[in-house]
Amino acid sequence: MKLTRENITEYVGRFLDGRTSCAEEQALYEYFRNENIPDEWNYLRDAFAYFESGMREEDAAESLPEVTSPQPLRRSGMAAWCSPRIVARWCVAASATIMAAAGTWLAVSSDSNATDLATSLYDGSYVILNGEYCNDIETMDYQIDIAMERAAIMETKAARLLAMTDKQQQNQTKQYN
């Protein structure tokens, strides 16, 4: 089996998925041992050297026959679980799980902190709608937003009115002078 620039991508993908046969893996090791590989695959050279060293030790221990038909590689006992590839995959899976759990915990705690802050910022607010009194800040969230937007509009108008008054006073002062 000859690996070329065109099919190397497919075989590397199958290798990482654990779907390569012994022969295909040996071909991959030999390919990456070659110094004349494309630059874009250079970063995998050390990884395949590592895989090859691990596979060679396991082969020496178990003396597996060469499998020519494309079948998933099978190993028995502890050797299977100690395969570097499987260990690496478990490490990646464990890291991803830990990160997901940490992210979820951070999101939940920040949500509760945000809720507590909102409640304390607007503590004392209330609404009366059709005779019904409500002072639950979380329920009033929308009403609070409306009130704050209204306040912003009024403050813009007030600034304009005060500026106009100042200008009128300045004009009057100029007239008297």
Binding site: S125, V127, N130, Q143, I146, M148
Partner: peptide, 13 residues
């Protein structure tokens, strides 16, 4: 009766 009244306070955090 039918009134709509909002009293919202904003506090210094």
């Amino acid at each position: 009766g039918t009134i709509s009244y909002r009293s919202v306070v904003k506090r210094n955090p």
